[in-house]
Amino acid sequence: MPHQALIEKRPWLLASLAAGIGFWLLKDTGLPGLYQIALKGAGVALLAVYALARHKGHDANTIAAVMAFGALGDVLIEFRLEAGAVAFLIGHLIAIRLYWQHRRPNPSGSQRAAALALLVLTSLVSFQLGGALVAVYALGLGAMAATAWLSTFSRYRVGLGAVLFVISDLLIFARMGVLADSPLPDLLIWPLYYFGQFLICVGVVGELRRRAGAA
């Protein structure tokens, strides 16, 4: 879509991209901490606004709530890790319900296997990286990704976005231990997470609009 059309038709999406990319570029600069936190929270919060502006209905409200809890988690995690994790987990549970309501009637064997791997391996790897409490959170994370993969929403957007979210969180857990001295987590965690949320939101809203148009 041309740049001018993006500004005119999807201003909230453009604003989200500006905030999300801006935070990644400015997070290691001299920008005061509160401004960084506000910019960080704005990235995904504006995705929630985009969802509400682009489509009306219960499912659009639901994915907007998922984004809202994600944005809340982005802010809370800067003050207390556990508080941020609770906000993210609530968002995962809401997303699981949405994806389950839109599950594929007859997924293939490979799709089922991929979903099972996302559910099981996310928890097992998280347990190895961070222990039992981290694994409890990761169970919700893995279930979110598994149900997204099995949903009727696009796997190339929603499914891939959920997988990027999983990888981002695994890097957070790895930064606590095995990758504590590596620069990779700080470089990759935010872009993987933000663009994962971006793909999820755009994928769900786009599919809802397509179905509404077909109806």
Rank of each mutant, 00 (worst) to 15 (best):
E8T: 12
E8I: 06
W12E: 13
K27W: 05
T29Y: 07
G33P: 01
G33R: 14
A38N: 06
L39S: 07
V49N: 05
A51L: 08
A51E: 08
L52Q: 09
A53Y: 03
H55N: 13
G57E: 11
A64D: 05
V66I: 12
F69K: 06
A71L: 11
L72Q: 01
D74H: 11
E78F: 06
G84H: 04
A85I: 15
L89T: 13
I90W: 02
H92L: 10
I94W: 01
I94K: 02
I96A: 06
Y99M: 13
Q101N: 14
R103A: 15
S108C: 04
S108V: 01
G109R: 12
G109T: 01
Q111P: 02
Q111L: 13
R112M: 14
L116Q: 01
L116I: 13
L118D: 09
V120G: 08
T122Q: 08
S123N: 04
L124N: 01
S126A: 15
S126K: 10
F127E: 03
G130D: 01
G140N: 03
W149T: 09
T152M: 04
R155E: 05
R155W: 00
Y156V: 10
R157F: 12
G159C: 04
A162R: 06
L164G: 05
L170I: 02
L171I: 11
R175W: 05
V178L: 11
L179E: 01
A180R: 13
D181S: 08
S182H: 10
S182E: 07
P185E: 06
P185F: 06
D186M: 09
W190R: 00
P191W: 00
L192N: 13
L192C: 14
L192A: 15
G196E: 12
G196N: 12
Q197F: 08
F198E: 06
L199G: 02
I200P: 02
I200H: 05
V202F: 00
G203F: 10
G206M: 02
G213H: 00
A215R: 13
A215G: 11
